[in-house]
Nucleic acid binder design. Structure first.
Length: 589
RNA sequence: GCGCCCGUAGCUCAGUUGGAUAGAGCAUCGGAUUUCUACUCCGAGGGUCGCAGGUUCGAAUCCUGCCGGGCGCACCA
């Protein structure tokens, strides 16, 4: 599972929401529902019938386009044999021009073979809606528009972004786009830990470097950052450089060794700017940077502590204030206020999530590394203790594993302590933004990922990004050829002649294209962008197969236009899907 | 030790939240090009779904136990 404890979709969610998916999918569901309602002797409530109704894509084309197992699910409560029930349901199906034929198969499945008419309708929709195809229109079920905040990256401004942050950036941005495609109002947010110990350690490290110390020397501060970039910061600081800040101001390095506060402000401004450059290069843009320091300034931290104390769930022990988080499923109680009077980081963390809720985001998704999964129970427990009506499973988490980088058959070590590690910028420089983006979202987040730099660089079919992008470029190439040959493509002519696309390759491609809206819905519901990446490679594969087996630019103008409609739709879906993943769709390779 | 996650073809991984004969790419082997880009395509072999039980019409999928690996178990963040 890539996600933890996201809300149970509940019974009935097996059926896709009404306002998503293809038109034909919704029509089919309606037809089956009517059939069930028409069966006289089913001793079942309508709600139970709805819950049992699931429609799924068939794996084997011989089984048609869609199949349902309602008869299998209802057989027992109805006290009837599955196949008999299935036969009765089929007999009760209203006539429809989207169904070519229906059959009862296996233990009691009902298979639906769609008519060419159904496909023609869906293909027309792709061409008509263009870049919007697959996205849910802005009028549907209210819960689908629930304002959602997606928090990701949230790296401390204490060094460059490494590959793990890259995975988070790629994942978080794709997730946000996926949710937007489903009609949610999404905010991309970056939580900035600018008030903690880490920043202090950063300042100490720069100061030590300014004094000429190196990691390991006597006098080198404990927990100070060892990276090369610290030395650069120290040099810039002593050179009296100016650095602009995010709020439009400017920080000038004082070049004063004892000016620890000045060192801190200068270093943070520099590193923050570096991170922004990385993210910009990666094509990720945040709507909001939420500063930890503002939580203190606005009294949110204090208010949270007061709220926790008021809850009666706190206690004093060994001079510290504790919260009984074990009451809410945590494995041990947590310190809120240390015996030295300062708060643990857990407090601003809870305060931050309170603001998410109070800002109207009743759905929150946090993208984090699995190494931080211990915080999940804590934050939720803190929110529960406040008793603000926040659901127990708030927020959702998408946890991702670490990334190994292989280059030239060897692992490139990632070690912040050692001071050398692969940064997002390194990767983008080596293989390009598109490859980094695609690679980092093409696998399930929750397993270790090995980034093969050589594969990502290769211009061959082995490289999945290249393979998908090439399919897109290839369609564009076909249209260049069309012009060169002085041929024409008329969409209306093509639309009228879609019945001529009868080759197995064409049927397969049609099937795949029209599946796209369902893929988006599923990927968004499960918070799994890799499903989209996987789909795109399959779509590209089917396109390449088709391309190789058939010439599109034939003399027969009707067939030609029909085929060009099909490949235009293919290109559109590839472009739309890549767009959600933050990958470009080039006209030429 | 406790908690969370992972274990599917030689390798990298999918598997539509319990369905039909477990799929794809790479690698291996065998084929295809006077062609809209061979930057491609077609075919073949390859499996104890970590192991053992359980749940049921039906399990890679859900439950229990074990084996192996990752991560986490601070008055650090």
């Amino acid at each position: 599972m890539a996600t933890m404890d996201h809300p149970d979709p509940g019974p009935g969610k097996l059926r896709p929401p009404r306002d998503s998916g293809t038109l034909t999918l919704k029509d089919l569901l309606d037809l089956i529902e009517s059939a069930l309602a028409a069966l006289p002797d089913l001793p079942l409530e309508p709600a139970a019938l709805r819950d049992a109704l699931a429609l799924e894509r068939t794996r084997d084309p011989a089984h048609g386009d869609f199949a349902t197992n309602v008869a299998l699910r209802l057989a027992k409560p109805a006290r009837r044999k599955p196949r008999d029930l299935a036969t009765a349901i089929v007999a009760a199906l209203p006539a429809s021009d989207i169904i070519e034929r229906t059959e009862v198969a296996g233990p009691g499945f009902i298979n639906f073979h769609l008519s060419p008419h159904a496909y023609a309708g869906e293909l027309a929709r792709v061409l008509e809606e263009g870049p919007r195809y697959g996205a849910v229109p802005a009028s549907g079920e209210p819960d689908r528009h629930e304002p959602t905040v997606v928090e990701f990256v949230s790296a401390n401004p204490t060094g460059p972004l490494h590959v793990g942050h890259g995975r988070q950036a790629a994942l978080g941005d794709a997730l946000a786009a996926l949710l937007q495609s489903q009609g949610h109002a999404v905010q991309r947010e970056y939580y900035y830990n600018d008030a903690g110990v880490q920043i202090h350690n950063l300042a100490l490290a720069v100061q030590a470097r300014v004094r000429g110390l190196k990691p390991g020397d006597t006098g080198w501060p404990e927990n100070a950052y060892a990276g090369e970039y610290i030395q650069e910061l120290a040099a810039d600081f002593m050179a009296g450089k100016k650095e602009h800040t995010q709020d439009g101001g400017e920080v000038r390095a004082s070049a004063d060794v004892d000016d620890l506060d000045g060192i801190r402000r200068f270093a943070v401004a520099c590193l923050r700017n570096e991170q922004d450059l990385d993210l910009q290069k990666f094509g990720v843009k945040f709507d909001v940077y939420y500063l930890e320091s503002s939580l203190y300034a606005d009294g949110k931290v204090e208010a949270t502590v007061n709220g926790l104390v008021a809850s009666g769930k706190t206690f004093e022990q060994d001079g510290a204030l504790w919260l009984r988080t074990t009451d809410y499923g945590d494995d041990k109680d947590r310190v809120v206020r240390k015996s030295d009077g300062t708060y643990t980081y857990f407090v601003p963390d809870v305060a931050y999530h309170v603001t998410k809720w109070e800002r109207g985001f009743h759905r929150a998704i946090n993208v984090q590394g699995t190494d931080h999964h211990g915080t999940v129970a804590r934050v939720r427990a803190g929110l529960q203790a406040l008793d603000m009506g926040i659901p127990a499973q708030y927020p959702d988490y998408v946890l991702h594993n670490m990334v190994k980088v292989m280059r030239g058959g060897e692992e490139v070590k990632i070690s912040k302590r050692a001071g050398s590690y692969v940064t997002v910028r390194d990767l983008v420089d080596w293989v390009g933004r598109d490859a980094v983006r695609f690679f980092l979202v093409m696998r399930q987040p929750n397993s270790e990922f090995t980034f093969d730099v050589d594969l990502a660089r290769s211009r061959s079919e082995e490289n999945p990004v290249y393979y998908v992008q090439y399919a897109h470029a290839r369609v564009s190439s076909v249209f260049r050829q069309l012009r060169d040959k002085g041929m024409t493509h008329a969409r209306e002519v093509g639309a009228r002649n879609l019945h001529r696309l009868t080759a197995p390759h064409e049927r397969a491609l049609l099937r795949r294209i029209t599946q796209y809206p369902e893929v988006l819905t599923t990927a968004a519901r499960l918070l799994e962008p890799h499903q989209l990446a996987h789909y795109l490679t399959e779509l590209a594969s089917e396109f390449h197969t088709y391309y190789n087996a058939h010439t599109f630019l034939v003399d027969d103008a009707e067939l030609r236009s029909a085929r060009l409609n099909l490949v235009t739709a293919t290109r559109q879906v590839i472009a739309n899907g890549l767009g959600i993943l933050g990958v470009s769709a080039p006209e030429t390779m």
